[in-house]
Structure formats: structure tokens, C-alpha cells
Design a protein around this nucleic acid. Structure first.
Length: 428
RNA sequence: GGAUGGGUGGCCGAGUGGACGAAGGCGGCAGUCUUGAAAACUGCUGUACGGGUGACCGUACCGGGGGUUCGAAUCCCUCCCCAUCCGCCA
């Protein structure tokens, strides 16, 4: 959520930003309604002030007739206030509805464009794109041959988009969790395992919209709970409605959770195998920072993601996400796209991580502030999130890049200790 | 699932329908004392919105919503949340 006063004072800037982001919001109308609301609010406050004064006068009234006169006066003033107040509330609801759709501002260097076609490649990882002297398989074929997944059983038990991991795929998932967690602990992240469910209010604070027709979120019937789509939700919610001391910042956490996504409207998109699934495991980085530190922290998150994929020996590129592809809360977003030899005609990059600086957009809705010692007032913190590892997509990248001509898959050096062997071979 | 007890300021915690934006404590800030620090003592110290260049002023806020009343933290209704105990269970 953007600050309302800021919107009023920067109507044109906000309008232009909405246009760049491809979001249709009537900012002028919001401003009109807010001006109306303010003047009505002032009237209502004045009526209320008079009513309060009348009430106080009752105690001092000299006699019974005067007391009754004052009471009647009070009644009328309250009625006037109630009427005005109701109008204010109605306007407030309209304004909030519009305001909640206004996206965050965009970093001046973020590429302007309607969709991911406008994303800007910033750099590539250390590992070169492999060239095979055989016809590489995609991860579904590899998984079939090596008995790593069961999509049929997943479909039968839970429906399309669910799957079982088996054998070395299980060890790889656990290995990736360990590998990433340890790396992040060394970089001063507090490791956390979060709930996989969260209240609607928290989802909304973080910027997700549960229970709409286009929602990405599974919700639990007869309750206020939803399956989380990312630990960003539960990590962000951890400090909701909190006033922190300046010295407590930054708070850096890495959270392990399952992630559940309905993928509504995604049917037909490139989504073979593990690429677009309803459930996966993810380790998410999250930080609450001082506003001055968020830009630097975003760079750091991106560097960590690069280091993870470099260490895993997976080729990737980093893209600066275009304004139209940013999503509501993000001010700037970098994605890592890993090379997936089995994707598309002859291999393609596919998104594996994403890191965003949400500035104060989430903090405002979640009510997360800090104060400086000896200074009046509070300020909103900045929030950042970044994927350390999304297991399902990492598995695709590992299997497809590390496959060998005999159909086996080498285990990345960094994971061998955790997995327990160097090569995944077909079972005899 | 059953039974209780709770939700009040940055935190803890009191609060008879008007004196309450709210005692007291902690924490924080400033000062006195001290070579310095600690301790002790004194004063100040909530948030949001609106108005004024400003010292300030106004309004709202005691879990959410509704009601009673001239007036509600306080009384009534309703919803939500939290804690503890019992039962069940990995």
C-alpha cells in the first residue's frame, strides 16, 4: 500500500507508474474522494467537539430545565456527527478499495515494459551452458528412467500438479535444504521453519489476494486460514503490528516451508513435469531493514542467489524485471533464470529464483515500524524477500544439466556429502 | 472437541458511567550528583489523522463490530483472538 498523502501530493507520478506497470487505477478519482472525505471528516469532528462540550456542560447545569436543554442539544449534535461519520465511512471504503490496487513505485532503473519480454539481462553465472554430444533428455524422462518421481500417483491422489518424489530425488531435496540453510546461517540469517498456513489478514498485508476468482491461494473451508504460497507470507507476518528499535534492524531470516499455489489461469503454459506444480518446498530469505539499507540488501540477496547457483554449477542469467511484470508490492525485482536443457526446443532459461525490494509497501499494511532512540514518531521498515532455493525448479536444473550420455545424472559436488553418492544411476 | 481465564500505551499492569489518553512499574530521553560510569533523585516520554511557519490546537483510538446513554475502557449484544487445564493424537 502506498501512503495516501504521498499519492495526493504526487498524482501524476503515481498515474505514470500505474501505466508503466500495466495497472488500471483511477488515481484522480481516489484524490477527489479523499478531498471530499477530509472536509466531511473535519465537519464531523467539529460536530463531535461541540457534542462533547455539551455533555460536559450537563454536569455544571444550574437546574433541571437547563440540564434537559443541554441533553437535547447533545442528542442533536451526536445525530449530526453520526450522519457525517457514516458518509466519511462510505467514502473511506471506496478510497481504500482503489488505494489497495495502487502498486508500489518502481525503481528508476527498472526497465519499463509491459511484460517479461522487456526484462533486461544483467549478467550470466560462472557455469557455461553445457553442450551435449548426445540428445539431452528433459527432467521428466530422466525421472522416469531413474525412478525419481511419480506424477501418475500424484494425480490420482491429489490431482494434476501434485507429485511424489522418490529415491535420490528425496535425498536431493533434503540435500538442497541443508546446503542452502548452512550457507545462509553463515551469512547471518536466522534459520526458521514457518507454519504452512496463515490468516487471510496476513496474506493481504504481504500483498496476496486470497479468495478472489483469480486467486493463486488455496484457502481452508470454514476457517480464516490459507495455505501459504511462499514463506514470505509467514516471515513477513512474524513482526506484524510491531514497533522495533532502530538497533534491532536489520532482521534477516531464512524460512523453510512448503508452498501451495493453485496456478489458476496457468493451464497451457509451459508447465511440463515439475515446472509448474501446486506444491513445492522452498527456502526463502527475508529481511526487515532500515529504509537506507534496502537497496544494498537487494543486491546482497541477488548475489547470494548467484552464489548458490554458481556453487551448484548450474548455468543461469540474472534479469532486471520489467515494470509490467513486477507484481504489486515490489519496487525492484531481480530474477535468476537457470538454463534448462530439456525446456523448449533446444533448451531455454526458466525462472528459478526471484528477489524483491518491497520498500515500505508491505510494512505499511502489516504495521511494521521502527523508532530511533530519543526521537518522536516512527518510520516504516523496508521489507525484502528472495528465493534461496525453490526445490522443484532446482531439481529440474540439476537433473537436466548434470545428465550424462549413459542416462545417469551426476550429483553436484556441493551436494555429494549430503546425498551420499556421486552419481544417480538407473536401478538394476 | 470439553472447561475456565484473558485481550488496556514501546513492554508489564491498575481502572467505582463524567475528574481517563488512562494510576503504578519497566524501558527511553533530559537534568542533578560523580574525575568518568553505576546507583540515587527530579522532570519529560503513546499512535494516527486533520489544522497552523511555529510554541501548539482539534478529533479519534483501551481486541473488532453493534447497542444503551447527553456522556462508555467501564453496562448490554455479537464476533474474533490469546492463554491454561482436560480429552484425543504425530
Amino acid at each position: 500500500m502506498l501512503d495516501r498523502r504521498f499519492i495526493l501530493e504526487n498524482i501524476e507520478l503515481v498515474e505514470n507508474n500505474c501505466r508503466d506497470r500495466g495497472v488500471v487505477v483511477d488515481v484522480r478519482k481516489l484524490a477527489d474522494l479523499e478531498h471530499q472525505r477530509r472536509s466531511l471528516q473535519t465537519e464531523a469532528e467539529e460536530a463531535n467537539r461541540q457534542a462533547n462540550a455539551a455533555s460536559k456542560a450537563i454536569g455544571k447545569a444550574a437546574n433541571e430545565p437547563e440540564r434537559e436543554l443541554r441533553k437535547e442539544e447533545g442528542r442533536q449534535l451526536r445525530a449530526k456527527k453520526d450522519g457525517l461519520h457514516a458518509e466519511v465511512e462510505a467514502l473511506e471504503a471506496q478510497i481504500r478499495k482503489i488505494q489497495s490496487r495502487v502498486p508500489n513505485l518502481s525503481h528508476p532503473n527498472a526497465p519499463v515494459g509491459a511484460d517479461d519480454a522487456a526484462n533486461l539481462e544483467l549478467k550470466q553465472g560462472k557455469t557455461p551452458v553445457p553442450s551435449f554430444n548426445f540428445d539431452p533428455k528433459d527432467h521428466v524422462e530422466l525421472g522416469d528412467a531413474l525412478d525419481l518421481f511419480d506424477f501418475d500417483a500424484g494425480g490420482k491422489v491429489a490431482g494434476h500438479g501434485f507429485y511424489y518424489l522418490k529415491n535420490e530425488a528425496v535425498l536431493l531435496e533434503l540435500a538442497l535444504q541443508q546446503f542452502v540453510m548452512r550457507m545462509l546461517i553463515e551469512r547471518n540469517f536466522t534459520p526458521i521453519i514457518t507454519p504452512d498456513l496463515a490468516r487471510t489478514e496476513i496474506l493481504q498485508g504481504v500483498g496476496f489476494i486470497p479468495r478472489g476468482p483469480e486467486t493463486q491461494i488455496y484457502s481452508i473451508a470454514d476457517s480464516d486460514l490459507n495455505l501459504i504460497a511462499t514463506a514470505e507470507i509467514t516471515l513477513g507476518g512474524m513482526y506484524s503490528d510491531t514497533i522495533l528499535e532502530r538497533e534491532q534492524l536489520p532482521i534477516r531470516m531464512c524460512g523453510l516451508s512448503h508452498c501451495y499455489r493453485t496456478e489458476a489461469g496457468a493451464a497451457g503454459r509451459a508447465s511440463r513435469g515439475l515446472y509448474r506444480v501446486h506444491q513445492f518446498t522452498k527456502v526463502e530469505m527475508f529481511a526487515f531493514t532500515h529504509p537506507e539499507d534496502s537497496e544494498k540488501t537487494l543486491g546482497e540477496f541477488c548475489d547470494i542467489e548467484c552464489e548458490i547457483f554458481d556453487t551448484l554449477g548450474i548455468p543461469f542469467r540474472v534479469v532486471d524485471t520489467a515494470t509490467g511484470d513486477l507484481g504489486g508490492p515490489a519496487y525492484r525485482k531481480f530474477d535468476l533464470e537457470a538454463w534448462m536443457p530439456g525446456r523448449g526446443e533446444a533448451g531455454a532459461f526458466g525462472e528459478v529464483t526471484s528477489t524483491s525490494n518491497c520498500t515500505d509497501y508491505q510494512a505499511r499494511r502489516l504495521g511494521i515500524r521502527f523508532k530511533n532512540r530519543g526521537e518522536k514518531g516512527t518510520h516504516f521498515v523496508h521489507t525484502l524477500n528472495g528465493t534461496a532455493i525453490a526445490i522443484s525448479r532446482a531439481l529440474i536444473a540439476i537433473l537436466e544439466n548434470y545428465q550424462q550420455s549413459d542416462g545417469s545424472v551426476r550429483v553436484p559436488d556441493a551436494l555429494q556429502n549430503y546425498v551420499g553418492h556421486e552419481v544417480i544411476k538407473p536401478r538394476p
